[in-house]
Design a protein around this nucleic acid. Structure first.
Lengths: 225, 225
DNA sequence: AAAAAACTTGACCAGATTGTCAACTTCTTT
DNA sequence: AAAGAAGTTGACAATCTGGTCAAGTTTTTT
């Protein structure tokens, strides 16, 4: 209902995928401005806490213009959330049965940390959404994450059965890795306090990667003793 | 300014610590009701996202009554936040130089996980506050946490110098332990999906403790090889 | 039991917030 | 260059929200 408003929007909603940004420069640019600002604000305040004037101001557009592209705050939020899911898979791709567990897990940790650092706002937004109970995550998105997790858990099991790593609960292991790699972006204020720095730099992320990798891998890899 | 309103409140604000709940049954009971409800709501929505009518409803008191005990939403929030800090130290007490690192760290992990499970709402509230930039954490609270962290980091260093554990960056190690132990309470929805359960039970927490402990300790403890 | 203090409550207010819209400007098409 | 589509904008309305308060009830004190 009320989906037919803002007619021009609909025409571009599921536009021909062959024609990208240059096809609709103004719309694409402004939608991007809005979503970028929205991710930043939503990631700190959540859906209910964010004020759309704040998003409008951060995007450099007047409020009325924001409503030209999106019909409600929820719609902006959902659009922002939808973009998060795909980033889930990327790092996970490293967990593959045909690789050696040591380098695969190290690569995974690095990829996760890099992603969190380079997409801190998105990472926080995701955290915020889960904190609130994942109410706005589509069931498809959750199903997808579940499926990928199961798939990758089997890789861990295969490595364990092959004697390449110690026996470990794969799902809890993933949680251990997720939590550690996302922490620095999500709880930057706390990490800064703990590390006695005023701002996380690349060096801090490198030492984080080293600490996580060494600690976990040393505990995981079987040794030819 | 405007601090003199609600006069009776002030009289009990810093009341004689010798007389506890039974001294002011009604006030103590209602303040507790409000704070309990507030922690639950704030932990999901944050300061700006929470509606005080919602807190009022959850506490079973009419809104006007809530304002009889607290003069603003911020005051409720700060009161809720203040209670979090002390729980910080409790688990940390296990990290002590005169204990064996293996059992000390295991006890620490267990204590942290237990605390997160038993105080899920508080744990989420803390996470939410840090996510938003820790703006409402008093500087004393942050200083305290920093101090305790430094103190305990030295214990790790002592263990490492004594050759009892591998060399590791103590602060990043703590972050690894914090993130893993808090994850289950903060991101329960995600953990449930990952573990293929609809609700976390004690058994899940036990397996979490086992996985974290074994993985980290196996990677940390030096072996008499 | 009377008075005072503590507590309760729903109605109310002012400002904030979401969402609308008509008039306007800019871009695209022909 | 004309016409139509797309985009812009500030003003506006309806609702929501934080916070107040006066009038009432209950509890405590004397």
């Amino acid at each position: 209902m009320a989906e037919e408003l803002n007619a021009p929007r609909a025409s571009a909603e599921k536009g021909h995928p062959s024609q990208a940004a240059s096809d609709e420069p103004i719309r694409a640019r402004n939608v991007l401005k809005i979503l970028t600002a929205a991710v930043e604000i939503f990631s700190r305040k959540g859906l209910d806490g964010a004020r759309i004037v704040e998003i409008a101001k951060a995007s450099g557009l007047p409020k009325g213009n924001v409503y030209y592209y999106f019909s409600s705050k929820e719609e902006i939020y959902n659009a922002a959330i939808d973009r998060l899911i795909h980033s889930w898979d990327d790092a996970f791709r490293h967990i593959s049965a045909d690789r050696e567990p040591g380098e695969a897990i190290e690569a995974y940790i690095r990829a996760k940390l890099d992603h969190a650092r380079e997409n801190a706002a998105e990472t926080r937004l995701f955290a915020n959404e889960i904190l609130q109970g994942a109410v706005h995550l589509s069931t498809e998105a959750r199903d997808h994450m579940r499926t990928v997790t199961s798939e990758k858990a089997r890789v861990i099991d295969i490595w364990a059965m092959a004697g390449k790593i110690e026996k470990v609960d794969a799902r809890h292991l993933f949680i251990l890795l997720w939590s550690a790699t996302q922490f620095y972006a999500e709880f930057e204020a706390l990490a800064c306090d703990a590390l006695h720095v005023s701002q996380l730099k690349v060096a801090d992320y490198n030492l984080a990667a080293k600490t996580i990798t060494e600690t976990v891998l040393r505990g995981l890899l079987t040794r030819p003793s």
